[in-house]
Design a protein around this nucleic acid. Structure first.
Lengths: 202, 202
DNA sequence: TAGATTGTTAATCGATTAACAATC
DNA sequence: TAGATTGTTAATCGATTAACAATC
């Protein structure tokens, strides 16, 4: 199965939002309605939907429930994705409280930090643990994902340690481009880039 | 001048991070070094850089300082971009504390909320104001950008109000697809989409 | 000099849009 | 029925990669 492109993933999550919030009371929706609200071409919407294996009716469009479930299936919302957050600062504690995570199957198990004032505390109902506990915990419960929200100056060092512990996916919220072995996947989340993109239309 | 594509904007911000954090001690950098660290084709890097108007040396690559400044110029980091945050919950208060904003010229002036327990308080050194103060304030100081971090059920209503007040750019952190007039630009920030994209490689 | 690296053109690849027959 | 809307193919558009002459 060919990997589905990042752009398609992003559009599918937006269709899903639309079904879940805007059209939750309707039975069906047409490619034109989706296209209109997201400012896309309607045939692009139909292609994306075809990819999810949902069939529409020649009149009356696509069944909302089935489409919503097909997107969840395609993108793996139901698979439980366990993550650790490393760095219990502002961003880390905001993310552990981020309500939408659980809708997508993302489950934050704990936070880690180096600051002894934070260790032992809780954030969003999850424990903040000493960073040096990471190795043992990963060895025990085999966590593959971390969310990296440490200060820039610590980013590479913490990454090296996490990789040594066996982490395979790093969702990088720091502005530092990390050096990692090829087997580790890093996604650089550059939030401000979105803001700049939004203003590019002028 | 043709609008520069979103993908290019995103790559330029990553180059900028690289120059600012990883290579801040070096004088120059080659397209091969940038390409290697970001897993890109080197000629793509050269094209992006050409777009910023920076000339390299046939031996020795590109001057770091000049390239960094050219990217800042191209993406408008120096222009002050004033924003209001609407919704002083977890995400809103995390964003007002987000240190990187100021590096990109984004200046959060105040937060707005409907919760009387929050109104009058501060977050990240900025005042939390009653939402109904928005109209007067925008009329006075002409703010064009809002960051929307309200609960989903309030998203559309608050948007309608903000649009009425004259807001032109909405950075939408809610999972609701907003209905707005064509003249208003909405950027749907779907954070989880990045996580799903990261896992698409398997 | 020889080697490294740019700047740029041409070739390829992938994503989007246009168009329309099929049909409920 | 007539109209709405899908599913899909072909055409277009845009982005990436390959290739290489120029040159410091």
């Amino acid at each position: 199965m060919p990997a589905i492109s990042n752009k398609i993933i992003n559009r599918l999550t937006l269709y899903h939002c639309l079904l879940k919030y805007t059209f939750k009371e309707q039975r069906s929706i047409s490619s034109f309605e989706i296209a209109e609200l997201l400012d896309l071409d309607d045939s692009l919407v139909r292609k994306d939907i075809a990819l999810c294996g949902v069939l529409g009716r020649k009149k009356g469009g696509y069944p909302i429930n089935e489409l919503q479930q097909a997107i969840e299936q395609k993108l793996g919302f139901a698979e439980r994705k366990e993550v650790f957050i490393i760095g219990a600062g502002n961003l880390g504690t905001a993310l552990v409280n981020y309500a939408d995570f659980k809708d997508y199957g993302i489950d934050v198990l704990a936070l880690f930090d180096n600051d002894s004032a934070k260790i032992g505390q809780e954030a969003g109902g999850k424990k903040i643990l000493a960073l040096d506990k990471l190795q043992n915990l990963i060895a025990k419960i085999s966590i593959k994902n971390i969310i990296l929200t440490v200060p820039p100056q610590a980013a590479q060092e913490v990454t090296d340690y996490a990789v040594k512990c066996g982490v395979q996916f790093i969702w990088n919220f720091t502005p530092v481009i990390l050096k990692t072995p090829k087997a580790v996947t890093v996604y650089n989340e550059n939030i401000v880039s979105s803001f700049l993109q939004m203003h590019n239309f002028i």
